[in-house]
Amino acid sequence: MKERFLMKEIDPAAYTAMLGLEKYLTGTGISPLHQEMIRVRASQLNGCAFCINQHTQDARKAGETEQRLYLLSAWKESPQFTPAERIILAMTEEITFISREGLTETTYQQALKEFGLKGSSELIMAINIINAWNRIGISTHRVPGQ
């Protein structure tokens, strides 16, 4: 696969807008570790090799363990994830695969109970942001490690 182009070079305004969304995330209540969990899992689901490569490294820097990174794709069968993380991962999958059922009422109500309305809103935004990056990375054939 050959990289098609770099968004930041061809359309810097669009790239800057995406960076603005990333900056928004730094002011949320979502921990850096949970932000990376969202990024890695959505990227796995979307098959974005560039983002998987980048965000597994970032997750390690944020304190994530190798074991949990290995088990992330099988989180439903892995006791290593907390109840709050299970809600985050369920939200990530349901929103990433929006055309299936969307964010189910069950998961939404669990999120409200665990994170409140503001926290749930922030999680929805975090999931949408990485999904947008994944679509950019896949569309432009971003090469992992570059």
Rank of each mutant, 00 (worst) to 15 (best):
residue 66 E to Y: 09
residue 99 S to Q: 14
residue 143 V to I: 15
residue 87 I to M: 01
residue 71 L to H: 14
residue 112 L to M: 03
residue 106 T to H: 05
residue 63 G to D: 12
residue 87 I to G: 06
residue 13 A to L: 11
residue 18 M to W: 13
residue 67 Q to E: 11
residue 107 T to K: 00
residue 61 K to C: 12
residue 77 E to M: 12
residue 36 E to S: 04
residue 51 C to V: 15
residue 38 I to K: 06
residue 93 E to R: 02
residue 18 M to R: 08
residue 40 V to K: 09
residue 60 R to Y: 10
residue 139 S to Y: 14
residue 74 A to F: 08
residue 116 G to H: 00
residue 18 M to T: 04
residue 48 C to I: 03
residue 49 A to L: 10
residue 79 P to N: 09
residue 26 T to A: 15
residue 15 Y to L: 00
residue 134 N to P: 10
residue 65 T to L: 01
residue 131 N to I: 05
residue 138 I to N: 02
residue 99 S to L: 12
residue 64 E to T: 08
residue 83 P to G: 00
residue 31 S to V: 00
residue 113 K to Y: 00
residue 107 T to L: 04
residue 146 Q to T: 13
residue 38 I to C: 02
residue 97 F to R: 15
residue 58 D to M: 03
residue 121 S to F: 08
residue 98 I to D: 01
residue 146 Q to G: 15
residue 105 E to H: 11
residue 41 R to G: 01
residue 87 I to A: 06
residue 117 L to Q: 08
residue 27 G to D: 02
residue 9 E to Y: 09
residue 47 G to T: 08
residue 109 Q to G: 01
residue 42 A to F: 01
residue 74 A to T: 11
residue 120 S to R: 07
residue 34 H to C: 13
residue 44 Q to L: 13
residue 49 A to T: 01
residue 86 R to N: 02
residue 11 D to V: 15
residue 22 E to D: 13
residue 76 K to V: 10
residue 29 G to Q: 06
residue 114 E to F: 02
residue 131 N to S: 02
residue 116 G to Y: 04
residue 56 T to N: 03
residue 87 I to N: 03
residue 126 A to T: 01
residue 137 G to R: 07
residue 57 Q to W: 10
residue 62 A to G: 03
residue 58 D to Y: 00
residue 128 N to Y: 07
residue 89 L to T: 03
residue 138 I to S: 11
residue 77 E to P: 10
residue 135 R to C: 02
residue 129 I to E: 03
residue 26 T to Q: 14
residue 65 T to I: 03
residue 45 L to E: 04
residue 103 L to G: 03
residue 109 Q to S: 09
residue 96 T to V: 09
residue 138 I to D: 10
residue 22 E to M: 12
residue 104 T to Y: 05
residue 131 N to V: 01
residue 96 T to Y: 03
residue 69 L to V: 01
residue 124 I to M: 11
residue 115 F to L: 04
residue 114 E to N: 11
residue 130 I to K: 01
residue 19 L to W: 11
residue 57 Q to R: 15
residue 31 S to Q: 05
residue 121 S to E: 08
residue 141 H to R: 14
residue 53 N to A: 12
residue 50 F to P: 09
residue 56 T to M: 13
